[in-house]
Simulated scan of single mutants.
Amino acid sequence: MNILAEVVKALSEASDLPVAELPADASLESLGLSSIHVMSAYVSLERVLDISFTGGDLRYAPTDTVRELAAAIGGIHAAR
């Protein structure tokens, strides 16, 4: 499973931004994505990846860019 592609798709659905406008190395802030968008994407990713995020899962992971967020989620997915 391509975690980066799934994260981009979830962020696209949460924000109504087209997938093509969500480059992997763009910061979430520069894309105008709020914490609400990210949380909505998390809910979608929990279903798609069959995982459950807990409060501390992403607390210390670098998640400034789409790629960093995907890497952090990929680590959680692999650990479960």
Results as ranks from 00 to 15, higher is better:
1 M>Q: 07
1 M>V: 11
1 M>H: 07
2 N>A: 04
2 N>C: 01
2 N>G: 02
2 N>E: 12
3 I>Y: 00
3 I>M: 05
4 L>P: 01
4 L>A: 00
4 L>F: 02
4 L>T: 00
5 A>P: 04
5 A>M: 04
7 V>N: 06
7 V>Q: 03
7 V>D: 06
8 V>K: 14
9 K>S: 13
9 K>D: 09
10 A>E: 05
10 A>M: 03
12 S>Y: 02
12 S>M: 04
14 A>R: 07
14 A>C: 13
14 A>G: 09
15 S>I: 08
15 S>P: 07
15 S>Y: 07
16 D>C: 09
17 L>R: 15
17 L>D: 03
17 L>Y: 08
18 P>K: 11
19 V>Q: 11
19 V>F: 03
20 A>H: 03
20 A>Q: 13
21 E>W: 01
21 E>P: 02
21 E>Y: 08
22 L>M: 10
22 L>I: 15
23 P>I: 04
25 D>N: 15
25 D>Q: 14
26 A>V: 02
27 S>A: 05
27 S>D: 13
27 S>F: 08
28 L>T: 08
28 L>W: 14
29 E>P: 00
30 S>R: 08
30 S>V: 04
30 S>D: 15
31 L>A: 12
31 L>P: 08
32 G>S: 12
32 G>N: 14
33 L>H: 12
33 L>N: 10
33 L>A: 10
34 S>N: 11
34 S>L: 06
34 S>F: 11
34 S>E: 14
34 S>T: 15
36 I>K: 13
36 I>A: 12
37 H>M: 11
37 H>E: 10
37 H>S: 14
38 V>N: 05
38 V>L: 07
38 V>D: 06
39 M>P: 00
39 M>D: 04
39 M>G: 07
39 M>V: 12
40 S>T: 14
40 S>I: 00
40 S>M: 04
44 S>A: 15
44 S>E: 09
46 E>D: 00
47 R>M: 08
47 R>I: 13
49 L>W: 05
49 L>N: 10
49 L>V: 12
50 D>G: 05
50 D>W: 03
50 D>N: 11
51 I>H: 04
51 I>L: 12
53 F>V: 04
54 T>Y: 10
54 T>Q: 06
55 G>S: 08
55 G>Q: 01
56 G>F: 03
56 G>R: 08
56 G>P: 01
56 G>D: 08
56 G>I: 01
56 G>L: 07
58 L>S: 11
59 R>S: 11
60 Y>C: 06
60 Y>L: 15
60 Y>Q: 12
60 Y>A: 11
61 A>E: 15
61 A>L: 11
62 P>Y: 13
62 P>F: 09
62 P>D: 14
63 T>F: 00
63 T>P: 00
63 T>L: 03
64 D>P: 00
64 D>R: 15
64 D>H: 07
65 T>N: 05
66 V>G: 02
67 R>K: 14
67 R>C: 01
67 R>F: 01
68 E>V: 00
69 L>M: 14
69 L>S: 03
70 A>K: 10
70 A>Y: 06
71 A>I: 00
71 A>G: 02
71 A>M: 05
72 A>V: 08
72 A>F: 11
72 A>E: 09
73 I>P: 08
75 G>Q: 13
75 G>L: 15
75 G>E: 15
75 G>D: 14
76 I>M: 01
76 I>A: 00
76 I>W: 05
76 I>Y: 03
77 H>Y: 15
78 A>V: 01
78 A>E: 07
78 A>M: 03
78 A>L: 06
79 A>T: 02
80 R>K: 12
